[in-house]
Design a protein around this nucleic acid. Structure first.
Lengths: 174, 174
DNA sequence: CCGAATTTTCAGTAATATCTGAAAACCATG
DNA sequence: CATGGTTTTCAGATATTACTGAAAATTCGG
């Protein structure tokens, strides 16, 4: 354990901690974000015990959050011949991470919102009072916009990284 | 209080409740999202007591979250001549809501993340081991991507709605 | 400057989300 | 089919976040 290794450890800890804090400011739980940060910055897959040790968390916690990361598609289980336990490896390509998160958040957040808006727009269609008309109008506006956002999310998530950059340059002149 | 008015009340309550649930799945607190939903779907500005009554929450809670919404730029205080107390009115234009939220989230989430990544990339620049190189490389990749996202967010948030639609149509053929 | 209306703050409480640790289930191997 | 390694589950403990209610501060008309 020399000075160079210590410096790396320290910087990684900093990154893991900050990434965890960011995550929890989002709807993502701290530990999940921390595990993701850790796995992203490590050259080899880790097993559950390594994650537990590095982050000083319990087995149950490590297990739950690793499973959740796998469910999100951000982490893969890798099996090593001769080894009985699972190892975990994070997707490291930033564009893939982005599209995965975009797809997942769309599914979990945008699509349900759209459902609510459609239902409320429909339920308020016939209410012929100033309040009713205002409400219905607002629901329609929101529904239209969220549907648009949904489509955009799909399209962007389906792009290849190079294409996205090209498009951005073309549209924005950057 | 006739049947039509009841139906509206019920549908609005549904919307408020669901929007609150969505918000809390994000990093936004339930009450703040509910107040926003309420104010968006009401034709006239409301005072604090009206919000308290409608959502059955305490004065302190109403106050805190109204202030927070004002800080986000999603709600305005309106003063009525002859009235001493404040009334609150939500921005109703969906595109303006979107750009406001985009700007605010960029400021609160993307920009700090960029700071962390820059710091970690720099701190790891000279660590010449396989682990160190992998870490540094990942930090650089993330930094580059987040910087790109930051620029995109600014550009999109600066667009007019019509222009955004036009652009989307052009790029995606929708 | 007084008093009423209103806003703001915040200590204490309540609600929610997360984590632990240990037991149970699982599973490959001899 | 018994054993030991490993994963999975989950009830209870802990930590975090949000809310209440009441007191304090502010504002304004007179």
């Amino acid at each position: 354990m020399n000075a160079t290794t210590d410096a790396l450890k320290e910087t990684r800890d900093e990154f893991v901690a900050q990434w965890g804090a960011m995550g929890s400011q989002w709807g993502i739980n701290r530990t999940m974000a921390q595990i993701h940060a850790l796995l992203m910055t490590v050259p080899e897959p880790l097993d559950t015990d390594a994650v537990m040790e590095e982050l000083e968390i319990s087995r149950g916690n490590a297990h739950t959050n690793l499973k959740e990361l796998v469910a999100w598609g951000l982490v893969r289980i890798v099996v090593r011949k001769g080894e009985r336990r699972d190892f975990f490896e994070a997707e490291k390509d930033v564009w893939k991470i982005f599209t995965t998160v975009a797809r997942e958040r769309k599914r979990r957040e945008i699509d349900p919102a759209l459902g609510v808006l459609r239902k409320c727009a429909e339920a308020s269609a016939g209410i012929d009072t100033p309040e009713g008309r205002a409400f219905h109008e607002q629901m329609k506006q929101l529904e239209e916009f969220v549907a648009f956002a949904s489509t955009m999310a799909d399209r962007v998530a389906g792009m290849k990284h190079g294409f996205a950059l090209q498009m951005a340059a073309k549209v924005f002149g950057g």
